[in-house]
Amino acid sequence: MSRVAVKKRILRVRAAARVREFDSLAAEEPLEIRLNGTPLTVTMRTPGDDFDLAAGFLVSEGAVASPDDISTIRYCAGATVGGENTYNVLDARLAAEVPTPEPRNFYTTSSCGVCGKASLEAVRTVARWSTREDPVELALPTVADLPNRLRAAQRVFDRTGGLHAAGLFTADGEPLCVREDVGRHNAVDKLLGWALRNGRLPLRGTVLMVSGRASFELVQKAVMGGVPVLAAVSAPSSLAVDLAAEEGLTLIGFLRGDSMNVYTGERRLRTGVQNVTSGAGDGSAGARSPG
């Protein structure tokens, strides 16, 4: 099987010191996902949890919602280099009663091809569950500690420093599953695939914590998995905020220490604050990191 990290010989420069040594790098390899034998997509990913990645991608695209919707996922033995399986091609087979979607119906192919009103309507059309009515509430100290809990579970990051992470947590901050990948979208898909394969969809009452920014695609994936709260250490995009507001999802950005920006769904946070003062100006300060 492929490795999640590889060793490369480097020249390390530290002030006047020059040392030749090995450095650990996050592995990046292509994965071709086939659906019922037909090529569907190719993504660059960190090898590992590939079946979860494929299953989560199908969840994100609205093709499946139950572990029974997928009959098998297997590596294709024909994908070889030098007679050895590369484990870089896999095929997911849908159950007989599950319709095979047309390729043109797949509305997210990573970050390109999605825009504006049509994208928001597409998510509303295919989402299996509503996040709006999820009654989960979170204490601010619990939210503030999520980046630390996510970082503590990043085992490959400790060796390479080059991976995104996504974690699913309970409302009390207990980790359910954490996945790492060179692609932040892949890390979230691996979580959704884990949830699907373990019969945990929809992910009501949970928090999705991501190590990067909150893009439209990540909000979209949270909605497709029934996740009511998405928190990120960096900024959201404008379309991400629009979608979160449309779907009733709580979206938190710039989560660093006890500071955060709550863009939508603040009703789910037990802030303990009695009075909230509106800032002056056009609101642009709120789009930047707190502090």
Results as ranks from 00 to 15, higher is better:
V114F: 13
D172A: 08
S66L: 05
R268A: 08
T86H: 12
T108M: 11
A127K: 14
E32R: 11
V126G: 03
A166E: 14
P39W: 05
D158L: 14
R256V: 14
L192V: 12
F51C: 04
G113M: 08
L196A: 00
S289D: 01
R104P: 00
E61P: 02
L35Y: 04
A17G: 01
T109H: 15
G212A: 15
K221F: 11
L53Q: 13
A287D: 00
P99F: 07
K7L: 14
A165L: 05
A195V: 06
V42Y: 06
R18G: 03
R197I: 02
R128D: 04
A214D: 10
M44S: 04
G37W: 07
D23S: 10
R151C: 04
Y107E: 07
T206M: 11
G253A: 14
R270C: 15
A16L: 05
V207G: 02
G248I: 03
G286N: 02
G113K: 13
A127H: 07
G286P: 01
F169R: 02
S111A: 09
G281M: 13
G83K: 12
P147G: 03
N198T: 10
T125F: 06
L176K: 11
V136G: 01
G257V: 10
T125C: 05
E246W: 11
P175I: 05
E84T: 05
K117H: 10
T277I: 15
S60H: 07
A139N: 12
A79E: 12
V64M: 05
R34V: 02
V219N: 01
A77V: 10
P99E: 12
P103G: 06
S66D: 15
A139I: 01
T160G: 09
V126Y: 11
A231C: 14
A96R: 00
V210L: 06
A165M: 04
Q274M: 11
W129I: 01
G283N: 10
C177L: 07
G283T: 06
G173I: 08
A95C: 07
N85A: 13
A95Y: 09
S238N: 13
R34W: 03
D258I: 11
S284D: 14
V182Q: 14
I73H: 09
L120N: 03
P99R: 05
G83F: 06
L249V: 15
L25E: 15
Q220P: 06
A166P: 02
A17E: 12
G116L: 06
T38P: 04
